[in-house]
């Protein structure tokens, strides 16, 4: 899914990284716990979170994630914007709550990591 489509589906406002909207993402993760994100996510992913601090950007950077969606209209700090710009990460905010935002992306084909039952 193109990041532009993520923006469109979530009616999101772009904070930074507008020039990267044509990039693709292949999975997504919704969490406020950054260690959970660090445990399971693969690259080229979207991070949806209600957490607002610099560690959100650092976590995304460590995981090679390319797009962060702040849910419930959370406003990023100036430091977050600075770090996201420096790391080439698209950041956007949406009015939707976490559950709804994840559901919209999932229903449109952006699934999470598959759970193996073996």
């Amino acid at each position: 899914m193109k990041i532009a489509t993520v923006r469109e589906l979530l009616n999101a406002e772009i904070v930074c990284g507008e020039e990267l909207l044509e990039e693709h993402v292949y999975s997504a993760c919704g969490s406020d716990m950054m260690s959970d994100v660090l445990a399971y996510v693969k690259d080229q992913a979207v991070l949806l979170t209600g957490l607002v601090n610099s560690q959100v950007i650092r976590t995304a950077e460590m995981m090679d994630m390319v797009c962060i969606v702040l849910v419930r209209s959370k406003k990023p700090t100036e430091e977050m914007v600075r770090l996201a710009k420096a790391s080439g990460i698209v950041m956007m905010t949406t009015e939707y709550r976490m559950y709804d935002a994840c559901g919209m992306l999932y229903a449109n084909g952006l699934i999470g990591k598959k759970v193996r039952h073996d």
Partner: peptide
């Protein structure tokens, strides 16, 4: 702050 979940 997003940490302290026993995953470190």
């Amino acid at each position: 702050l997003g940490f302290g979940a026993g995953m470190g």
